[in-house]
C-alpha cells in the first residue's frame, strides 16, 4: 500500500502558517504595547515618590496641589515649590540634583499625566475638595505609591489600583450621597 503524506501536508501547511502569523502578531503587539503605550504607571522624568512625601513624612496633599481647592484642575506644583524645601532637605540625593538642574536651567519638569479624563467630561476638583471628599476616594492609596499608578474608586467605596476611571464610579458616589442633580448628564458632560 502506498501511503502519501502529501494530502496531510496540504491541510497542515496553511494551518501551521496561520499559527505562526498569529504568534508573530502577538509578540509584535506585546512589544509595541510595552514600548509605545505609557500604560497605567508611566516612568516619570524624576523618580518622585508620593510614599516618601505624603506617606512617611505626612505632607498634606493640598500643600503641593494647592489649586485643587480653588479651581477645576488640581494642578502640578511649580519647580519652585519643590525647591522651596529641597534647598535644605536631602540636597545630596541624585534625584534632588536632577531636580536642581531643572531649577538652574529654569525649565519645567515634563511630568507625564497619569490620571486623565476624556475631553467630553467636566470634572472640578474644587467642588469635591470643598465637599470634604478624601483625595484617596478617587486616586487610591497614593501615600503608599512610589510611582503613581492609575486607580479608581470601586463600587463598594474602596480604591482599585490599576483600573482607569469609568462613569459608573462617578454615578455610584453621586447616587450614594444624593447629590443635587447629580445624575443629570449635563452635570458632568459638556
Amino acid at each position: 500500500m502506498n501511503i502519501s503524506i502529501v494530502p496531510a501536508l496540504k491541510v497542515l501547511r496553511p494551518a501551521a502558517m496561520l499559527v505562526i502569523v498569529i504568534l508573530v502578531g502577538l509578540v509584535l503587539g506585546y512589544w509595541a504595547n510595552a514600548t509605545f503605550v505609557p500604560g497605567n504607571s508611566p516612568e516619570q522624568p524624576i523618580a518622585f515618590s508620593h510614599k516618601i512625601h505624603a506617606g512617611d513624612n505626612e505632607v498634606p496633599c493640598l500643600y503641593c496641589h494647592t489649586q485643587a481647592r480653588r479651581s477645576p484642575s488640581a494642578g502640578v506644583p511649580a519647580v519652585s515649590k519643590c525647591v522651596g524645601c529641597h534647598l535644605e532637605v536631602a540636597t545630596e540625593k541624585p534625584q534632588i540634583r536632577l531636580l536642581m538642574s531643572y531649577w538652574e536651567n529654569r525649565e519645567p519638569i515634563p511630568w507625564i499625566k497619569v490620571h486623565d479624563l476624556p475631553d467630553f467630561v467636566h470634572f472640578t476638583h474644587k467642588r469635591h475638595v470643598l465637599a470634604n471628599i478624601e483625595c484617596q476616594t478617587c486616586h487610591g492609596p497614593v501615600e503608599t505609591m512610589d510611582r503613581i499608578t492609575v486607580s479608581s474608586r470601586a463600587v463598594n467605596g474602596s480604591a482599585q489600583v490599576g483600573h482607569p476611571w469609568k462613569m459608573g464610579l462617578c454615578l455610584s458616589c453621586h447616587r450614594e450621597n444624593e447629590v443635587v442633580n447629580g445624575i443629570d448628564c449635563l452635570t458632568c458632560h459638556k
Partner: peptide, 15 residues
C-alpha cells in the same frame, strides 16, 4: 438628547 431639569435640551456628544 433629552430634557434636563433646568429646561435645557441637552445633547450628550459621547452618547
Amino acid at each position: 438628547t433629552y430634557h434636563n431639569q433646568d429646561g435645557l435640551n441637552a445633547q450628550i456628544y459621547n452618547r
